[in-house]
Amino acid sequence: MTSQTHSSEPNQPLTITESGSGPAALVLHGGAGPASVNGIAEHLSHTMHVLTPTHPGWDGTPRPPESTTIADLATMYSDLLRNRGLHEVLVVGSSIGGWIAAEMAAQDSDGLLGGLILIDATGVWFDDHPITDFFALDARGIAEHSYHDPDRFHQDPATIPPSQSAVRQANMATLRQYAGDPYMHDPQLLTRLADVSIPTLLLWGASDKIVTPAYGAAYAAAFGNAHLEIIGKAGHLPHLEQPDATFARIDAHLSKAANAS
């Protein structure tokens, strides 16, 4: 049995969904919004207490004017864990959520984090494999770059209710605020990860055309204790296209990390 509550943290403009019980996990969504990581949160909630925040500015939530960068979000979530007295927390991040998680790990000097799972994370840059300019894509282009099977996930904008379309446009404006300049990366991030020694799993869709698997390999090499798993027949959101394969790899990683501790 799991229960869910929505709460705003004192002194922080955070809306959080909580479920399950056990060791703490923080699940961070990407530009697609909190609904895109519901499956991950539900899977982990069978054995963990899962916190799934909505990043400030997404889905109509307030964004304080001083919160403008991915580092700001990372600091906010680190403060959340610290204020709740949580340590050794598993942090799972998809897309920019993975970037936030990596930044949290780079900032962590208090043992707040006990493990990382980054899923097709942005945050770094290679001139030979530039991150696709997501903001320049139309709906069909987004589907073709994000999914192994774009026809399964493409939505004709004409069929989306105006209220839902407005939310999506506002989410993209918020994404641009946090990750638009420099585009989708921090030039210093990779060099700051060498001292991060907590168990880290990089999961990457083989067909991701937003951030190719080369980015997963670079992340894996940058961390002190990491490995990369490629998921076939999946793109930028493997937990949506191949949930069983994604969750099996997560479970195996967590089991291995527990046995090693």
Rank of each mutant, 00 (worst) to 15 (best):
S3C: 05
Q4H: 06
H6Y: 10
P13R: 10
I16V: 13
V27K: 06
G30V: 11
S45M: 08
S45A: 13
H46Y: 12
M48P: 04
V50P: 12
T52H: 10
G57L: 00
P62K: 04
P65H: 11
I70Y: 01
I70E: 03
D72Q: 00
T75Q: 07
Y77I: 01
D79Q: 04
D79C: 02
L80G: 09
V89N: 10
G97L: 13
G97M: 12
W99T: 00
W99V: 00
W99H: 00
A101S: 04
M104H: 05
D108I: 09
L112G: 00
F126G: 01
F134Y: 15
F134Q: 13
R140H: 14
G141M: 07
I142R: 12
D149T: 02
F153I: 09
H154L: 14
A166Y: 05
Q177M: 12
A179P: 10
A179S: 14
Y183A: 03
M184T: 06
D186T: 02
L193I: 01
S197W: 10
L201Q: 05
L202R: 06
S207V: 08
S207F: 06
D208H: 14
V211A: 14
T212F: 02
G216A: 14
Y219H: 07
A220H: 12
A222R: 13
N225I: 06
I230C: 11
I230G: 05
P243A: 13
A248D: 08
K256T: 15
